[in-house]
Every structure is written in structure tokens, then in C-alpha cells.
Design a protein around this nucleic acid. Structure first.
Lengths: 201, 201
DNA sequence: TATTATAGCGAACGATAGGTCACTTGTCAA
DNA sequence: TTGACAAGTGACCTATCGTTCGCTATAATA
């Protein structure tokens, strides 16, 4: 029961920090959302700062678990259509999973105030996706699905526009459907430009 | 002299808001940076909130003045090299102009707290650059410098990765030189993929 | 059963925030 | 010369913040 409350505080902190920022969030409101009074929080964390640090610990651990090892890399697509399909599945998850959305918002808000948030922001917004698709595109080139080129450059050219539209969904959720179809259109455009017939045996 | 102080307050507000956010900035520190005491601020603005609104007014006015009209669109390049050169000039300005950097940081930080900041963020980070390069690429296609394609799609594919690297410079300034050379490499890659011989008379 | 640790509560504390006000100073127009 | 006004000052107000503390109820342990 204790562990439960401690986790629930982190969940609610993520929710409120991602909307109002660390400074804009106060303990009274945070605990009230959990049906507690503010002093009860101090049974679980010794300060507001410790909530922040624990939240960042959890975010970093989650990121490393999910994207850190080469084991849970997605399979290299066997067709160009499958590249788009896989991309759309990933986009759908990342845009609709509330916790992931809140995490991105939080990193946007706090990246200039906290060093660890800054580093995690770069991974989330730039290097993480690029690395993943560098691997994927390298594999697709070897399969003869993509024209031979620098896989890292292609990965960057592919993921950055998609990432920009994901950010748009975070910022203006009412444009989500539109942004998703733009991502699909972009992926298909990308495939037309860089894709080629499968020449592998 | 009065107008001067009023402007200086806005300048300092931009500086501090962009580092610590609206909530993390307090009037005492803000005015102390200008050699004033906090009560003096209220001779120029009736509240902290009014500073914020005035700052946003100024940012929006500046944006519209600079990017709002079709008149100050850049000239359409006559060669593919000139596209890259023009891009690098624009990047150089936007990455090194302190006020522009602070404006982007501020919009990143406050986009989820203020409706006008949210709208301006979308313009700064996405639609503004895309629209400008849609015009440029349309012109370059007509000149036969780029393969015929959807100019808006190409503009998006071109500007989103550049924008992502500009963000990286904001977030991790020590990587600026590296990011700029990445932008150059990307622009040259883009030109290789989409450019073609000039077939116009 | 007696003991002890845990989780929550409510009152209170000190610090600091934004904001007000009476006052002084300097400038400029009448 | 005088009056009015703009700009700046320092003391003070009130609200709210994060935090502490003593208390109670509960549930597990010995």
C-alpha cells in the first residue's frame, strides 16, 4: 500500500509537471489529486526536489530498458510498404500513449533547467530515433530495398520530419489525425525517393 | 528614458523567462539585473503577467514583420550550391542571434502553459520555415533546378531536419559547430537527391 | 495481547512571492 | 518660479509556497 502511493505520487507528478512545469506545480494540488493532504507526501519523499529526481530516474530507467539495448530493436522490414506500416505503428503508439506524451512535454518544458532532462531530451527528440533507423536502413540497404547511401543520413532525413509532426501532436492535439496522415504521406514520399526493387535473392 | 526602461525590462524578461520560465522568474531578480528595485517595475507594467503579455506581443509583432509578408521572402537561388549557401547563412543567423535563440527557448518552455505561445511555437518550429521553402522550392522547380515534385513535401523534408539540429544547438550549445556541419552535409545530401541540371534557357 | 512501524492528518512555521503605497527626486512646461 | 508629472525608492501587506511536527489510526509482528 505504501509503495502504491509512492508510485501514484510519481504518476501525478508527471501529469502536473508536464502541464505546469516543476515550478508551476505545488504539493497541495498534487496530493489533493490523490485524495491526500500535502503533508502526507513527505512520508514518501523528503522534498519536492526528490520527487523530481525520482521521476527523472524512472524516466531514464524506462528509456534505457526500452531503447537501450540492441535486443529490442524492431525487425528490419522486408518490403518498402512494411517500412511505412511499421513506422505508422510506432507513431500511433508514441502519439497516443499518454505517459509517453507527457514525458515529451515534460522534457520540452524542463530541458533548460535540468541537466539530466537536457540529455534525455536529446535522446528522445533526436539521437534515439536516428540510431534506431540507422540500423533499420542499413539492414534494408543490405536487402536491396533502399538505394545504397549513408544509412545514418537517411535515418536522420527520415526521422526528423516525423519527430517534428509528433511534436505538433503534443502541442496541438486537435491536429493529431492530420499530422498522422502527413507522416504517412511523408513516409510514402521517402520510400518513392530512396526505395528500389528488391534485388536480393 | 522611460521608454528605454520599459524596453529593457522586456529584454531582461526574455532573458530570464527563457532560462527559468515564467514561474521560475521573480521580479526582484529581474529588476535587480537592471539596477532597479522591484517596486520600480510597477511604474512600467501593472503586473508580472502584463510583462509576459507585452513580451508575447512584441514577439508576435517581430515575427509577423519579419516573416509575415511575401515581400521579405529570400530570392529563389539560381544554383543548387546557392541553396546550400543561403541555407547556411540563415542557419548561422538563427543559431547565433541571442534574441532568436532565447525566443525559441522561451517558446519551448511555455508552449504548454500559454495559448499564444503554443501558436507561435508551431510557426517558429514547423510551418514558418516550411512555407518559406515551399515558395523557394516551387521557384527552383520552375527554374529546372529541382526535380518536379510536391514543393511543400520537399520543403518539409528539407526544413524539419534542419530545424531539429537548430534545436540541438539551443539545447547543447557546445555541439553547435558539429550541428552546423551536419546541417551543411544534410543540405548537400538533399541537393544530390532532389537537384538536377539547370534545363532553363 | 502488547508492540512497533507505517501512512495519513491538521496545525503551524519561516521564507519568499507578487503587489501597494507614501514619499523623494528630477525634468520640463506654463 | 512654480506646478505637474514621470521614474525610482523602501517599507509594508497578504498570500502561498515548501516543510516540519505532534498526533491518530491501522495493520503487521513478536
Amino acid at each position: 500500500m505504501a509503495k502504491d502511493t509512492k508510485e501514484r505520487i510519481l504518476d501525478e507528478a508527471l501529469r502536473q509537471f508536464s502541464q505546469k512545469g516543476f515550478d508551476g506545480t505545488n504539493i497541495r494540488e498534487l496530493t489533493a489529486s490523490l485524495g491526500l493532504v500535502k503533508s502526507s507526501m513527505y512520508k514518501h519523499y523528503k522534498s519536492k526536489e526528490e520527487i523530481w529526481n525520482s521521476l527523472l530516474d524512472r524516466m531514464i530507467a524506462y528509456y534505457n530498458e526500452r531503447f537501450g539495448s540492441a535486443e529490442n530493436l524492431p525487425p528490419v522490414p522486408d518490403t518498402l510498404d512494411e517500412l511505412t506500416a511499421m513506422t505508422m505503428r510506432m507513431v500511433d503508439i508514441t502519439v497516443h500513449d499518454e505517459r509517453i506524451v507527457m514525458t515529451r512535454k515534460l522534457l520540452s518544458i524542463e530541458q533548460y533547467r535540468d541537466e539530466r532532462a537536457r540529455q534525455l531530451a536529446t535522446k528522445h527528440f533526436l539521437t534515439g530515433l536516428t540510431e534506431m533507423f540507422t540500423y533499420i536502413f542499413d539492414g534494408m540497404m543490405k536487402k536491396g530495398l533502399l538505394r545504397n547511401d549513408d544509412p545514418q543520413m537517411l535515418a536522420f532525413a527520415y526521422t526528423a520530419p516525423i519527430s517534428a509532426l509528433i511534436h505538433l501532436c503534443d502541442r496541438e492535439p486537435e491536429k493529431t489525425a492530420d499530422a498522422i496522415s502527413q507522416i504517412k504521406a511523408f513516409s510514402e514520399h521517402f520510400v518513392r525517393v530512396y526505395g528500389q526493387e528488391n534485388r536480393s535473392e
